[in-house]
Amino acid sequence: MGRKYGAILLKDLQLEIRSKETWVAMVAFAFMVALVFGIAVNPVRVRLAPVFPGVLWVAYLFAGMLGVGRGFEQEARDDALTGLLVAPGDRLAIFLAKLTVAFVFMFTMELLVLPFMVVLLGEPMPGGILPLLAATLALGTVGFVGVGTLFAAMAANTRAGSVLLPVLLVPFSVPVLILATEATAGILGHVAPAVDPWPWLHALMAYDVVFLGLPLVLYEFIWEV
């Protein structure tokens, strides 16, 4: 279990370091969302600061949708997933490894894109909030990636899976979007009635527990011999 997990994790990270496919695509996409938004919404007329958390999370979630499907798509190419499945060891290892990889990719992307967003959208980012902000990003990402990996595993075996995945994932990212955006707004702290981020963070944690637990129960039904 542990060895299989480590091996798949290492393989995927190595593959990514060499090919840089997913990473570049995700960062470029999130960056483009910031760019397009900054141009489409006239920053002279509209104050961007109150909508900054929303734009941030929209960019993250759509870029995440791009990234979360890749993990299984690349395995499906040479039917490598069958190899992974029949390899000795628990299948939970495959699922957890894919989940971890998706999380690492998305979280790295978020940290990389954050400075761009802050600069482009003119967010007066106060210092000292970064640890809490990073925790919020991590919690939101966990919630998204848990159910995202489950659906990515399904979408890899369907026709037009790359189209299907966003359709399935959008309803599931609604709670993440609401909770994470409000928490982020609370942490950045310049919305008119001050928002306390902690209730939102707690709700986000609860969401994470449910939607990490469910895929761990149900992943078995995705792959069957």
Binding site: V147, L150, F151, M154, L168, P171, F172, V174, P175, I178, L179, A203, Y207, V210, F211, L214, P215, L218, F221, I222
Partner: peptide, 17 residues
Amino acid sequence: VLAIVAFFLVPLDYYAV
């Protein structure tokens, strides 16, 4: 699998909104 996950999502969505 999707229907079961969806069943748990709906109340969460409600409380989020």
